[in-house]
Design a protein around this nucleic acid. Structure first.
Length: 266
DNA sequence: CATTTCACCTGGTGGC
DNA sequence: TGCCACCAGGTGAAAT
């Protein structure tokens, strides 16, 4: 579910109310959601406070006052919310951080594709550059390295961080690039338009609070609205906003892929 | 190596 | 109503 705009929105809504607070205790820890396995999160968090909450790629990174870090990945169905201690606990709640002041950070994830990853003082495992700070020459060099379909390349987090299935399709539509085009065969002008389209769609989605297809909510439980402005994602058979041609759906790399056969000629 | 496929999970939806 | 097949924002391991 959550791609860069959704993760950014969670961070933006969580940080103001959680940063600077002490973690009184960790409750409800589901151990098979922890990586590496077997770590004692309770001890690691004991007497610590939250120094920072930031986004890197699709990760929500908590920095503690001892500089150690951990991150939460929301997978497909994860929610990270700030709730009052007396709010009923949902099923599939895998972590509760009791903060001073009576509020709790809660991690809910029915499908359990997400994770709680302890980093300690280590650096992030390798992920590509942030797309909002990416210049076209760098994007061009990254894409020149692979013969995969451009859509598949955009989903590769080691190439570019944070883009998922929705925003890959939406960016390719805005850029007028067919998802099946080989990444290494894009022309300089395609790269330029794609780079602009990626930034444009991500910024617009962040401003809209992300896309809520089904599960996604921000830290206050509020849904985003960008799903109302999707041009191709989830719109199979509906008329293209530009040319009325029915939006086509294919499967690429095992993922649903939506595009306009007319506007995205190549 | 690079690339592709598939398994990991739960739950909602739509067809019969 | 019930059952079942299919689908879903992600990712990493296994297969090719």
């Amino acid at each position: 579910m959550p791609e860069l705009p959704e993760v950014q929105t969670v961070v933006d809504t969580l940080a103001p109310l959680a940063v600077g607070r002490q973690i009184l205790r960790a409750l409800h820890v589901r151990n098979d959601m922890l990586k590496p396995g077997g770590i004692d999160l309770f001890s690691l968090l004991k007497d610590r406070s939250v120094a920072a909450i930031q986004r890197r790629a699709k990760r929500i990174v908590f920095t503690l006052d001892d500089r150690a870090r951990f991150y939460i990945h929301l997978g497909m169905t994860g929610q990270l919310t700030l709730d009052s201690h007396d709010t009923p606990i949902k099923t599939h709640t895998h972590l509760i951080l009791q903060l001073e002041g009576g509020r709790q950070i809660r991690f809910v994830d029915p499908r359990r594709f997400g994770a709680i990853v302890w980093m300690g003082l280590d650096e992030h495992t390798h992920v590509g550059p942030e797309p909002l700070a990416l210049r076209p020459d760098r994007l061009g060099r990254l894409l020149a390295k692979t013969s995969r379909a451009i859509k598949t390349a955009l989903l590769d987090q080691t190439l570019i961080a944070g883009i998922g299935n929705i925003y890959a399709d939406e960016a390719l539509f805005i850029a007028g690039v067919r998802p099946t085009a080989r990444a290494c065969e894009l022309k300089p002008d395609d790269i330029l338009r794609l780079n602009r389209a990626i930034k444009l769609v991500l910024r617009r989605a962040i401003r809209a609070g992300g896309s809520s297809i089904r599960d996604y909510v921000d830290a206050n439980g509020a849904r985003g609205s960008f799903q109302e402005r999707h041009r191709v994602y989830g719109r199979e058979g509906k008329p293209c906003a530009n040319c009325k041609t029915p939006i086509q759906r294919i499967v690429l790399g095992g993922r649903s892929t939506h595009f306009c056969p007319t506007c995205q000629a190549g």
